[in-house]
Design a protein around this nucleic acid. Structure first.
Length: 363
RNA sequence: CCAGUGGUGGCCGAACGGUUAGGCGAUGGUCUGUAAAACCAUUUUGAGCAGGUUCGACUCCUGCCCACUGGA
């Protein structure tokens, strides 16, 4: 299980965008996050099962975790570029309209778990509804109760399949409850009472202010910590989040941000660096004119393969000309930054110097 | 030299006798279980030159300049 602070990059469709598994290994990635919904649509979970599962299919020797499709209830459910709503939720499950061709697909908790077992990641996640923000209390309660019923169904199907296939996949249950203290507590109590291998916190980083996110997490953490189970924080991963949440006992988090920012030209770095614009904490835009002739590495102190070899001017050029290599070099850097920073946090927690480290970084 | 076609913002490129599209680029910003090599904002009126017709010209007319194509 994931018992030490672990940052999990996202590779929705079976690949961390722009990187090979060799590159992931080289920068110390232990595990990445794939998506059930996307892989079910393409190439299909049965196809992947026939190839011997996701590990063999992708040639990835490390660990894998799959999301349940629960987040797509949220992300496909809201209007996106006026494309309309692509999901319909009922007690039994969720009807998705494929974002690829509009074809209808029905996900139940059982179906999500079956697909995830076919994909065969090390860790899988119970089917839930990621409640939009803001939500009324009435809606949040209704969605929460449904998610709890889905959690029980997910768990039952999971145990059945583990037994039937003689496997030992690990299942995370998901705590929801929007931003209501009593609902969050109620959810933590319920999910922790079930026989899940790990507990995930969902329904955060959905557009709420950071303070609300911290609150929601604080409502549920005491209960979850008592279980001694690994705690995954779903969809969270700004640099400051690593300090805020690993410091409190969260054991893993996944986030698209570092890879997505990389493709948008933003690179991560520590603040207080003389050669960088520190207005925006921990990030700068490589396409900015000020890097056009800059002959030092993205982050002068970084040990990543990109920074060991290439300078800002070259990467600036690659982005201006939209050369694919740019996305790759930048993604390597950003993921390394997250992994390395997480490693510093791990070490500091062991040596009891976490508070000093956090102060050094965040002030 | 003759003929034809055409000269529109940093670049490409429409329409139009009256309020000039759009794209690219540039600049700034955003992104948290990836419908994302994405998205948003700004880039506040610019017609080869000189005249003319008209209430009004980027649009019609004349001359000149330039480019491309074809022909001597």
């Amino acid at each position: 299980m994931l018992l030490e602070p672990t940052f999990i990059p996202v590779g929705t469709q079976g690949a961390v965008k722009s990187l090979s598994v060799e590159e992931l290994e080289a920068i110390g990635v232990e595990i990445f996050f794939c998506n059930t919904y996307h892989l079910y649509l393409r190439p299909g979970d049965k196809a992947i099962k026939n190839f011997g599962g996701l590990h063999k299919f992708t040639r990835w020797k490390g660990q894998l975790i799959t999301d349940s499709g629960g987040f797509q209830v949220f992300s496909l459910g809201k209007d996106h570029n006026g494309a309309g709503k692509l999901v319909k939720i009922s007690e039994d499950g969720v009807e998705f309209k494929s974002h690829l061709d509009g074809s209808p697909h029905f996900f139940t908790p059982e179906k999500s778990i079956q697909i995830q077992h076919n994909l065969g990641a090390n860790y899988i996640i119970a089917f839930d509804e990621c409640t939009p923000y803001p939500a009324t209390k009435a809606y949040a309660l209704k969605a929460l109760d449904r998610t709890h019923r889905w959690a029980v169904r997910s768990l039952k199907e999971h145990q059945l399949l583990n037994k039937k296939n003689n496997q030992d996949l690990k299942l995370y249950g998901v705590v929801q409850g929007s931003y209501f203290k009593d609902l969050r507590e109620q959810s933590a109590d319920f999910i922790c009472s079930q026989d899940f291998d790990g507990i995930a916190i969902g329904g955060v980083s959905v557009g709420e202010p950071k303070e609300k996110m911290k609150q929601a997490i604080s409502y549920v953490l005491p209960t979850i910590l008592k279980t001694k189970k690994p705690i995954h924080l779903l969809g969270v991963g700004e640099v400051t989040d690593l300090f805020d949440f690993f410091g409190q006992g969260i054991t893993s988090m996944d986030c698209t941000l570092p890879t997505r920012m990389a493709r948008g030209g933003q690179f991560l770095h520590r603040t207080g660096n003389q050669t960088l614009d520190t207005r925006n904490k921990f990030k700068s835009q490589i396409m900015s004119q000020k890097y056009k002739l800059d002959s030092i590495a993205l982050d002068e102190n970084c040990q990543c393969p990109t920074c060991q070899k290439y300078d800002r001017a070259y990467i600036h050029h690659l982005f201006k000309t939209q050369e694919l290599l740019g996305y790759r070099l930048m993604t390597v850097h950003n993921i390394y930054f997250m992994i390395h920073t997480t490693q510093l946090i791990r070490d500091s927690l062991k040596s009891d110097t976490f508070n000093k480290l956090k102060h050094d970084w965040l002030g």
